[in-house]
Design a protein around this nucleic acid. Structure first.
Length: 515
DNA sequence: CTAGGGTTAG
């Protein structure tokens, strides 16, 4: 029964059954405690844990190494490493597993010194212990010690390599690539580690390249983690055909019903423009979690389907899923795009009062956006002054756009003075500001700002976009001339421009005649 | 039937 409950994550049941067992005077044995102790850690309940610890002492079963390891782990996860150390100190027989548990406890609170001190006392160490110690250094940013210890290791396994790979992944992408090539044996974690490293560094095209290499290598198959990372880069690249390919691959390789993959597919389809397919994936999922709901809600809001987004938000509550901060970002975005000011404030209030979520700057951003779009610039400014945190460039940019809509030069100039301090390199704001002047006919200022736009454009890559051609992602920018056939491309572009100018003039003619 | 190591999404 305990094994079944533990595997099903039903930790309250484990403890409940343990109490029933005690009431009936059925004596627990050495196999009982590790389950129950783990459940106390998972619930989590310190009081229950201590109670069961005491009970085990009374029954005299506390000298067991399995029991001791479980206890040390439990106390560490409940935040009391000292108590775990007391257990460790008083244990009559301590094997390597017990030592690893106590060392891991100290690593988990960042006390690498004590962990290392214990590590050094051991005469015999195995691979797990070495790897644990090294990954502890890495988790707390001590690359130098990690590397040094790695070099002292008597032998390596794949996990050792992967541990160091992950260390490089967060720091130096080129060192990470070199290390990846040197690994004598790679498993799915190695590949996922390399893919994750590219993701952290925004090198999304390299993710597709690596994924192709992984598929070509016959010994390793992608896992759900691989597919999720690759799907996320498809979203960022607009690589719809790769996304579709992964969808088919997932269906045929046992990832049907995998919640991580499903969530990745929703986001990918929505960001690649296929909102209907995203909805289909959402509807077909038999299990949903917070990310599923949030992805779908944000996707709908992003596609201008605000009413549908709000309906889904309600459905999420009815389904018993507790909304988190991201769910509220989705709902508030939907309100902003629909112009539902009162509804947004109701939402904002219920977030704080009913769900005890302290608003993030993103939530204030949504509210400012909402008020600006509704033409309520004064209220938006008041909200920014009232916020508990400093406004960021996103919020000021919203206010700049709001000032432009109302042709409020004074507000625009005040907001702009903030923006040049925070993000002097952001071309968009100068362009927006120049339009503010243009709108009211202040051409002197208009030209002055336009000049700044051009000057900043010289050093920055403007208007960059991506297109997928024959399963290959190609980047192009405004005034880009890098392509071998760029002459042909611009010729066709001119043709398209002529065409749309013609259509536009026809439309305006027909509008005028109908008036 | 019980104890120690890694990756993923909004």
């Amino acid at each position: 029964m305990f094994k079944g409950f533990t595997e099903g994550g039903l930790h309250e049941q484990t403890v409940l059954f343990f109490t029933r067992m005690k009431k009936r005077d059925v004596r627990p044995d050495i196999f009982t405690f590790p389950f129950v102790i783990k459940s106390c850690a998972m619930i989590p309940s310190f009081i229950l844990g201590v109670e069961i610890h005491c009970f085990a002492v009374k029954t005299g079963l506390d000298a067991n190494a399995f029991f001791g390891t479980s206890l040390i782990e439990m106390y560490a996860s409940l935040g009391d490493v000292r108590l775990g150390y007391k257990v460790f100190e008083e244990m009559p027989e301590r094997n390597l597993v017990v030592w690893t548990a106590i060392i891991r406890s100290y690593l988990s609170i960042g006390d690498t010194g004590t962990a290392r001190h214990l590590f050094d006392q051991l005469e015999e160490r195995d691979l797990i212990l070495w790897n644990t110690m090294i990954s502890g250094y890495i988790e707390h940013g001590d690359m130098a010690s990690a590397q040094k210890l790695f070099e002292e290791m008597p032998a390596y396994d794949i996990m050792s390599w992967n541990t160091l790979l992950l260390a490089y992944a967060s720091k130096d992408i080129e060192a990470c690539e070199r290390f990846f090539e040197q690994i004598p044996e790679r498993n799915v974690f190695s590949w996922n580690g390399m893919i994750g490293a590219y993701a952290r560094h925004g090198q999304f095209s390299d993710i597709l390249k690596t994924f192709r290499r992984m598929l070509a290598s016959s010994d390793v198959k992608p896992s759900d983690a691989t597919l999720v990372s690759v799907l996320s880069s498809c979203s960022k690249l607009g690589a719809l055909n790769w996304g579709r390919w992964i969808h088919v691959y997932a269906e045929n390789n046992g990832f049907k019903g995998n919640i991580y993959v499903g969530n990745g597919l929703i986001d990918m389809y929505a960001k690649c423009g296929c909102i209907q397919t995203a909805i289909q994936v959402f509807d077909s999922m038999e299990k949903r979690d917070a990310v599923t709901w949030n992805s779908m809600i944000s996707s709908l809001a992003m596609h201008g389907m605000g009413l549908e987004a709000l309906k889904l938000f309600e459905e999420m509550l009815e389904d018993g899923e507790k909304p988190d901060g991201i769910a509220f970002v989705g709902a508030l975005t939907a309100c902003a795009h629909l112009g539902l000011v009162d509804r947004a404030f109701g939402c904002f209030r219920s977030m704080i009062q009913t769900y005890s979520i302290a608003p993030w700057i993103e939530h204030y951003g949504c509210m400012v956006d909402l008020l600006c779009r509704a033409g309520l610039l004064e209220e938006a400014m008041r909200l920014v002054r009232k916020m508990p945190m400093e406004a960021d460039d996103v919020i000021w940019s919203n206010l700049l756009a709001g000032s432009r809509d109302l042709k409020d030069i004074n507000s625009a100039e005040m907001v702009m003075s903030k923006l040049v301090k925070i993000v002097p390199e952001d071309v968009g704001n100068y362009a927006l500001m120049s339009n503010v002047y243009g709108d009211v006919g202040r051409w002197e200022d208009f030209r002055r700002l336009q000049k700044m736009v051009r000057r900043t454009n010289g050093s920055k890559t403007p208007g960059c976009s991506l297109v997928e051609v024959n399963m290959e992602v190609v980047e192009f920018c405004s005034s880009d001339a890098r392509h071998v056939r760029s002459k042909d491309i611009y010729q066709i572009l001119e043709g398209l421009m002529d065409n749309s100018r013609f259509v536009a003039s026809q439309l305006s003619d027909s509008c005028q005649s109908s008036l």
